[in-house]
Structures are given as structure tokens and as C-alpha cells.
Nucleic acid binder design. Structure first.
Length: 196
DNA sequence: CGATTTTGACCCGCGC
DNA sequence: GCGCGGGTCAAAATCG
């Protein structure tokens, strides 16, 4: 896993998820964050999602109320389609990012295996489905381009990794502790303490 | 040669 | 009940 060596040369841009999400990083490219726990209800548009600014996002996470703070869905008719389908994923968290990127696959430090592709109704762009290829980890990720602005990519993470990113492991071995702003380490730890 | 991607089929929930 | 839209499976193809 050469995630630290930027395996995506062309994505040498500001989005290095595996590295750390730090306020000091170049967030110019991160326009919006949609974050929500439990299901996007309608695919209306951002009105049904909660858009949090970068700063807010950070603040929420540091206060421990990851997502809960602002992800309040006014309409209560949200139904996780997934919950009804086989007894799959227990619907942990769902987080969606919208980033400005030419590549839709940004390296977040995890290894993803693509398992499907579908064209979406209201978008000319297809949607790709990925699964975390780590055994036992059934986190899913959905990647599609913004239907209005194809220069934006919407990445939706479904679930929480039950393991750490290879990059995080690496970081853990470093003299300086893991960057507290790293979303993955944060998520991993918050889940292990919360849902156990 | 194993792992991953591709791609069409299949499945399921929901609205009409 | 049917059709549509969205999500997943799985076999074949491709890649490293």
C-alpha cells in the first residue's frame, strides 16, 4: 500500500484523505460537505441534506457529535432502502462529500473494489459503487459526478470501517500521534467506543 | 495467477 | 400489479 506516496499522481491535488483532514490544508477545493447519518432521504438536492461548512464540520467532530449536530432532516420520511434489503450493513453512518476534482476516485487510504456501476436518472453521469476490499469490512462508497457541475464529485461513504486505514496504521507508528483531525481515526475510535 | 474491473442481469422498494 | 429507479451479484475480461 503506497498510499503515502501518492499513488494517484494526477490527483496530487489537495485531497489526501489518508494523510489528514486538517484545517490548514488547502480547502479551496472542498466546496461543500454534506454529512448525514442514516440515509439520504430523497434525492432532491442539497435541501434534503445538511450542508456543513468545513469549519463547522471540524467543530462538530471535535465535540463528539459527529454529524448529529447539523444533520437534522426536517422531513421524517427517510427510509434507508438498505435496511430492508438483505440483512446487510447495519447502517452505521453515511457521510457524503462533494469535492471539486477531475478524478472521481480519490485515494482516501483505503482499498476499494468496484462492484457496480449505474446510470442515474437525473444525471448524465454514471454512479460507481465500491466496497472496502478489506475482509470483514463492509463499508461501501458511492461515487458520482455532480449532475449540475461535472467538475464536482460526490462521494458517499456508507458505514464505518472496522479497521484502520493502512495509512493510519502507518501514522500510528510515527513519533507524533495520529492527527486528531483525521476523519478515519476519529471515526474508528468513536465507533469502537460507542457501538460495542 | 490472483486481484480487480466491467457489465448485464437480477432483485427490491416504491409510486402509480 | 406493473414499471421505474436504484443497488448488488457474478461471470467474464482485464490488469499487474
Amino acid at each position: 500500500m503506497d498510499c503515502l506516496q501518492n499513488p494517484n499522481p494526477s490527483s496530487a491535488g489537495p485531497y489526501h484523505f489518508g494523510e489528514s483532514i486538517d484545517p490548514s490544508m488547502d480547502f479551496d477545493e472542498f466546496s461543500d460537505y454534506f454529512m448525514l447519518d442514516y440515509g439520504v432521504n430523497d434525492h432532491q438536492d442539497s435541501s434534503s441534506l445538511s450542508i456543513v461548512s468545513t469549519e463547522k464540520f471540524m467543530a462538530d467532530r471535535s465535540t463528539g457529535s459527529s454529524g448529529g449536530a447539523t444533520s437534522r432532516n426536517s422531513n421524517n420520511n427517510m427510509k434507508c432502502r438498505n435496511e430492508g434489503r438483505r440483512n446487510k450493513i447495519e447502517m452505521g453512518h453515511r457521510v457524503a462529500f462533494r469535492t471539486k476534482s477531475e478524478l472521481e476516485v480519490m485515494d482516501d487510504g483505503f482499498k476499494w473494489r468496484k462492484y457496480g456501476k449505474k446510470s442515474v436518472k437525473n444525471s448524465p453521469n454514471p454512479r460507481n459503487y465500491y466496497k472496502c476490499s478489506s475482509g470483514g469490512c463492509n463499508v461501501k462508497k458511492r461515487v458520482e459526478r455532480d449532475r449540475e457541475d461535472s467538475s464536482y464529485v460526490i462521494t458517499t461513504y456508507d458505514g464505518v470501517h472496522n479497521h484502520e486505514s493502512p495509512c493510519v496504521v502507518y501514522y500510528n507508528q510515527m513519533p507524533t500521534p495520529v492527527d486528531p483531525n483525521n476523519i478515519w481515526t476519529l471515526r474508528a475510535s468513536s465507533q469502537s467506543s460507542a457501538s460495542s
